[in-house]
Amino acid sequence: MPSFSQLPHAAQLATLEALARSVLSEHYGLDGAGLTMEVQQYEDNAVWRITPPGQPSFVGRLSVRDGRPAPQQRSEMQWLETLAASRTVAVPEPVTTTDGRYVVPVDVPGRDEHSTFALLRWLPGTAEPPYQQPGVAQAMGRTTAQLHHNAATVPMGEEDFDRPVWDAETILLTGHALASPAGRRQLGAEGAAVLHKVAEQITPALREGGADDRGRIHGDLHRENMIYTEGGGVGVIDFDDCGTGHYLLDIATVLSSVHGSRAGHLATTRPSPIAS
């Protein structure tokens, strides 16, 4: 049998969907065969919008990402549970199995490492909040602050929060971009030198402050992972990279995504120098 990674993309996704339907029937009491499953993305995780007939939608995530074992997935779901219970930050609320589990181990044929399945409630709204509209940028900042307030004030037994630690070294120096041969080839010597220089510049900032400046963080808090809700608020999705680190990392990611969007908008709306 070929390894899972050797299968064509469509065959991989078909395999994962069949497994997901089976898990939903066996562990969540849903009719797997009768569900509508719309693919949202498939990279490290296969993510579907799952809709039972006549019922609200769910999000199903079957993770085929190495290095995210079941204990780490459970920690992610436990944090989401505290956020959903607080009613201060709109997030996809985890749905437990019929026997009370957050995560179901899944054997994917042709793959050595266990995969995991998690089910969450669909968060209605649209991605990439329109920050140019009055009040929306403030709502994005307020949501970020509330996320960190939860991390600082709602205990989870931090010794049991089994998630990555995000700092300048793990992000820029020992992460995938420099640790993998493919990443090094893509970067080249010049790109690697730039990353090292950036790490030197931001490391002092990440070392400032004390314990109150660090805690649970989203880890990937850009605009595409924010949802503009029907009531005009801002929610947060995709906690797959959550971990512990300096709160500045989340703040910087939000600002960077706004800056990148703004720069792209200006580039497409300014008159061409050649035309002028």
Rank of each mutant, 00 (worst) to 15 (best):
G175S: 02
I50C: 07
M226Y: 06
A33E: 14
D99T: 11
P129N: 02
P129C: 06
F239W: 11
G34R: 03
H259L: 15
P273T: 03
P8K: 12
A127T: 15
E113H: 13
M140I: 15
H27R: 12
E159Y: 11
E169L: 03
A179R: 13
L120G: 03
L16M: 08
R270K: 06
G60C: 04
A11Y: 00
A177V: 08
D220K: 07
R74V: 15
R184L: 07
G260Y: 11
H148L: 03
H114V: 14
F4D: 02
Q73G: 11
Q138F: 05
G32R: 02
Q138Y: 08
L249I: 14
T15S: 14
P155I: 14
G100K: 09
P130Q: 14
N45V: 04
R185T: 14
R262T: 14
A20W: 08
L173D: 01
A84D: 07
T15I: 06
A145V: 12
H259W: 15
R101F: 06
T143I: 06
M1E: 09
T229E: 07
F161Q: 01
E113T: 15
P56R: 14
D107N: 08
P52S: 01
M1P: 09
G157L: 10
M156T: 15
A168I: 04
L123G: 00
D240R: 10
F239T: 03
I171H: 01
E230A: 15
V103C: 10
A182D: 07
T88V: 13
T253I: 11
P271D: 01
D160H: 14
I202T: 10
V47Q: 02
I50F: 09
E200Y: 03
H149T: 13
L19P: 02
R270F: 07
G135H: 01
G29A: 12
A33Y: 13
R87M: 05
V254Q: 00
M1H: 14
P155N: 09
R223T: 15
